[in-house]
Design a protein around this nucleic acid. Structure first.
Length: 229
DNA sequence: TACCAGGTGACTG
DNA sequence: CAGTCACATGGT
């Protein structure tokens, strides 16, 4: 395999990638949740976990009627852990959900409505200060629940930029976020679609061992072009 | 059967 | 500050 040549992307590259992914896959309409509560709990449950396992856990929570911050505050953490078992890391995640409920209860009248009135970047710092909420989960919440324009980065995003041949400095989470947010107009709706499209693409085609032969954007990708020869 | 999935925090040198 | 590890289930 020949090495991938790297170049700094510009606004046109980011816009083209978005347009091509949208044309290939259509709108994804993320996040799949009917309330801020479901969205935030789902964001915690999906940490390093396949979404289908999260769905099983969410279904069980609903069935057990643990389906509000009030209900989370009521239930023992051991019980919650057992209910969300299918999502994996269930002891840690039960604690994370409980702690988030305590946080809302303590500082925001048990409501995400009042939390989301906090402007950026304070809102982001506040979320990151909570145990169990790292950069991706914080940005998921800000983008898909609070609907404010932060660009969510994940392992899929980093995998894709690497294969596209995009130089991103620094190559970590904040470097990627700064790159997307500095080159794109802040638009929560578009950011949400963009991240969802990247996820869908990396889930089905740009997988760990990529399927470049089936890739709809191989022509704009360093690895895709190398594959085609 | 080993590897992977929409990360995060603790610990180490 | 950068590496390494624990956390855990279900699908392929």
């Amino acid at each position: 395999m020949k090495p991938i040549r790297k170049q700094h992307p510009g606004t046109a590259d980011l816009q083209r990638l978005f347009d091509r992914l949208l044309a290939a896959y259509g709108p994804q309409h993320w996040w799949p949740a009917e309330s801020d509560f479901e969205m935030i709990v789902g964001a915690i449950l999906t940490q390093n976990t396949a979404w289908r396992n999260v769905e099983t856990a969410l279904d069980k929570m609903k069935l057990e009627q643990i389906w509000s911050w009030d209900a989370v505050l009521e239930v023992p953490v051991e019980t919650l852990a057992e209910v969300i078992r299918p999502s994996g890391y269930f002891n840690q995640k039960a604690r994370k959900i409980k702690l988030f409920a305590y946080f809302l209860d303590r500082e925001f009248e048990r409501s995400t409505d009042s939390l989301f009135q906090v402007p950026l970047p304070d809102l982001r710092d506040l979320l990151l200060a909570q145990w169990g909420i790292g950069p991706e989960t914080a940005d998921d919440i800000i983008l898909y629940a609070a609907k404010k324009p932060v660009f969510v980065i994940d392992n899929y995003t980093r995998r894709l930029t690497t294969r596209l041949g995009w130089e991103v400095l620094p190559p970590d989470y904040e470097g990627h976020r700064a790159m997307f947010e500095s080159l794109l107009r802040p638009n929560a709706e578009m950011y949400g679609e963009y991240h969802a499209l990247i996820d869908h693409h990396c889930n089905g085609t740009c997988t760990k061992t990529p399927k470049c032969g089936d890739c709809p954007i191989a022509d704009i990708c360093e690895m895709g072009r190398a594959f085609k020869g």
